[in-house]
Design a binder for these strands. Structure first.
Length: 159
DNA sequence: GTTCCGTATATAG
DNA sequence: CTATATACGGAAC
C-alpha cells in the first residue's frame, strides 16, 4: 500500500518493503488530490528537500534486485552525484566505459527518483528525458538551484 | 537550426 | 538470433 505526499503541484507516492524503498513515483498533482500521510521519515526528508533544504538521502536503501547488473551499476554511480551538481549522460558513459544512450536507458529504470537523483544527469545540449515528465525534472533542478527558477513550472506545461 | 549515423543496452519476436 | 527502440552525442548539411 503506497504512501502519498502531495504539495507544490507535485505528488509523490512511495512503496516500502520493510525498511527498503521499493518504488517512488512522481506526477503532477491533480485537482482535489492533496492528502498527505506523513507517517515515515522519508516524507519529512522529501518535504524538506522540496523546500530547498540540502537533504542527504544516502541513508535510505533502495531495492534494485529486479534490475540488471548494468542498471544497478549506473544507478549506484548516480547516487554519488552531490546535491546541486549536474553531469551529462556522456560524462557518465565515459566513466563507466559505455555509451550515453545506455546510460539513459538505465536511468529510465530508476525505481526511486529524488532518492536516486537521476534528475542530475542531463544532456550535453538539452535537459534530456525523465520518466515522470521533463517538467518535473526541471522543477527538481530548480529546487536545487541547478537551473534558474521560473514561477510555477509544474502548472505551466503538460509533460 | 535540422538530419543522419555510431554506439551500448534491453526487449520482443 | 535478428529487429527494434532508446532519458545521447557528434558530425554533416
Amino acid at each position: 500500500m503506497p504512501h502519498t505526499l502531495s504539495r507544490d503541484n507535485l505528488t509523490v507516492t512511495i512503496t516500502l518493503y520493510h525498511n527498503t524503498i521499493r518504488k517512488i513515483t512522481l506526477s503532477k498533482a491533480r485537482h482535489g488530490l492533496k492528502k498527505a500521510e506523513n507517517t515515515i521519515d522519508l516524507f519529512d526528508d522529501i518535504s524538506a528537500y522540496l523546500d530547498g533544504e540540502r537533504v542527504d538521502f544516502s541513508r535510505y536503501s533502495v531495492d534494485l534486485e529486479n534490475l540488471t547488473d548494468f542498471q544497478q551499476m549506473v544507478l549506484n554511480k548516480v547516487r554519488q552525484i552531490p546535491y546541486g551538481v549536474t553531469v551529462t549522460y556522456g560524462m557518465l558513459a565515459k566513466d563507466l566505459q559505455t555509451s550515453p544512450r545506455a546510460i539513459g536507458g538505465a536511468l529510465s529504470k530508476n525505481p526511486a527518483p529524488i532518492v536516486i537523483p537521476c534528475h542530475r544527469v542531463i544532456g550535453k545540449h538539452g535537459l534530456g528525458g525523465f520518466a515522470w515528465g521533463v517538467t518535473i525534472k526541471k522543477h527538481l533542478l530548480e529546487v536545487e538551484g541547478s537551473i534558474d527558477s521560473q514561477p510555477d513550472v509544474l502548472s505551466r506545461l503538460d509533460d
